[in-house]
Write a protein that binds this DNA or RNA. Sequence first.
DNA 1: TAGGGTGTTCGCCGTTCAGCGAACATCGCA
DNA 2: TGCGATGTTCGCTGAACGGCGAACACCCTA
Lengths: 114, 114
Amino acid sequence: MTPTPERAAGASHRAAPLHADLDQVPLETALLALADPVRRTIVRTLANAADWERACGSFDVPVTKATLSRHFAILREAGLLEQRDAGPKRLNRLRRPEFEARFPGLLELALSDR
Amino acid sequence: MTPTPERAAGASHRAAPLHADLDQVPLETALLALADPVRRTIVRTLANAADWERACGSFDVPVTKATLSRHFAILREAGLLEQRDAGPKRLNRLRRPEFEARFPGLLELALSDR
DNA sequence: TAGGGTGTTCGCCGTTCAGCGAACATCGCA
DNA sequence: TGCGATGTTCGCTGAACGGCGAACACCCTA
């Protein structure tokens, strides 16, 4: 039998990150996720990088890894990013087209950050 | 002599509401203003009404007038509305085109409120 | 199998925010 | 001149949020 339903073949043995169903993310959750400057920095960095290029610890933000981990959870729950385990690292991808389809214009606004 | 420089002729003797310079409103302020459900209800109601039609007390929201007054101050500081005194009442106008020019798509997103 | 690297979780702290009642200010009108 | 209506301001409270260190879990490699 397969290990557990939550794990894809070859995936990490860590708990697989739960990714939000974009259609069920409230607008309020999306707005609050993007209202924080640390989280916007993360999103902007991801937008300027290739998918799965960035591990969680590779972002230049002035917080400890504990706080950083919490920010990633919030971004995940808002449907803004997808995570994949690669060895001890957790790689990230900005869910740009999905988020754009759900909240048109919002991500671009956060990226411009006027 | 004129009453005070802050008062236009015929305006209220109350402190004139200070309106934000849209160009200087940070994105974060706008996002946080629209993240609250009570404030989104106010904005949506204003969008479906004529300019200067609605007084502050005329909104169907489940909060006391003290709380309501604070919500209006936050919306004003975010550049979302303009207020004008008319007798004892304070009338409101949604600054739709100005806000749209500053944060394209954001207001429409808040109005649709999916 | 021991250890370094990576990320999460837990408990705690201080700040911020939405809510309230009470008091105050202003306006129009009786 | 007084009074009702309308908003604002002032404390206060409880909840939520961002921050931290410590402890834990997992992966890879020596």
